[in-house]
Simulated scan of single mutants.
Amino acid sequence: MRRERGLTLLELLIGMTIGLLLLLAVSGLLVGLLGEQSRERRQAQLGAMIDASLSLMAMELRRAGFWNGAGPESDNPYRGLYIEQGGRCLRYAYDDPAGKSPPGPRYFVFRLHEQRIQRRVSDAAGWRCDAAAGWDDLSKSDIGTVESLTFSREAGGAAIGIAVRASASRGQEQERLSIHTSVTLRNRPQVAGP
């Protein structure tokens, strides 16, 4: 009589336990990789948002003080650049380089308001940091919050320093980003403020 060959109940339970442990290890590794990918995506989105805002600010500040008119520099209506509200707001202006007729609004403001970087385009009458309407958000609160935005006078007024701190959070995880850049002013506006 031949003896039947197969697995005993004990062997089957040991095999299932080993398989379950391997499955748990692989799924834990997969969860860790997905969490890391999510964190890197949040950090990249936050970096891209802040980089786009800083690039626009730098491009605009290089135009600050430009005047397409003739006459002495003291007559330049766009020559002032003002850092206000303890460095959280910056006002500047420039003339239309193409000499369009009629000229559009040439007075601008950047500020931090309710954890968002904002920009406002206006005429000379509405050229204020505390204006109630007409602001465009440069940062998006669904991507991250801007904790601080500070403008400062650098190189004796020949440059403007911009410092930004932002964060993006999901649950208890939080990504932080701090950037400081300096923008050289091409048209030598008169910088007032800290």
Results as ranks from 00 to 15, higher is better:
Gly15Asn: 06
Gly15Tyr: 06
Gly15Thr: 09
Met16Ala: 15
Thr17Ser: 12
Gly19Cys: 14
Leu20Tyr: 11
Leu20Ile: 11
Leu21Met: 07
Leu21His: 00
Leu22Gly: 13
Leu23Asp: 00
Leu24Phe: 08
Ala25Leu: 13
Ala25Phe: 12
Val26Trp: 05
Gly28Glu: 09
Leu29Ile: 00
Leu30Asp: 12
Val31Trp: 13
Val31Cys: 00
Gly32Leu: 12
Leu34Gln: 14
Leu34Asn: 12
Glu36Gly: 10
Glu36Cys: 00
Gln37Cys: 00
Ser38Asn: 09
Arg39His: 10
Glu40Ile: 08
Glu40Trp: 13
Arg42Asn: 09
Arg42Ala: 09
Gln43Lys: 15
Gln45Thr: 04
Leu46Glu: 08
Gly47Arg: 12
Ala48Leu: 15
Ile50His: 08
Ile50Glu: 10
Ile50Gly: 08
Asp51Ala: 15
Leu54His: 06
Met57Phe: 04
Ala58Met: 02
Met59Gln: 15
Ala64Gln: 05
Ala64Thr: 07
Phe66Ile: 01
Trp67Asp: 13
Trp67Ala: 04
Gly69Pro: 03
Gly69Ser: 03
Ala70Asn: 13
Ala70Met: 12
Gly71Gln: 05
Gly71Trp: 05
Pro72Trp: 06
Asp75Phe: 03
Asp75Ile: 06
Arg79Asp: 14
Leu81Lys: 01
Tyr82Thr: 14
Tyr82Phe: 13
Ile83Lys: 02
Ile83His: 04
Gln85Ile: 00
Gly87Phe: 07
Gly87Cys: 06
Arg88Thr: 06
Arg88Ser: 11
Cys89Ala: 05
Leu90Gly: 01
Asp95Pro: 09
Pro97Val: 07
Ala98Trp: 15
Lys100Leu: 15
Gly104Thr: 01
Pro105Ile: 00
Arg106Cys: 12
Arg106Leu: 13
Tyr107Ser: 02
Phe108Leu: 05
Val109Glu: 05
Arg111Phe: 02
Arg111Glu: 03
Leu112His: 01
Glu114Met: 09
Gln115Ile: 04
Gln115Leu: 11
Arg116Met: 08
Val121Trp: 07
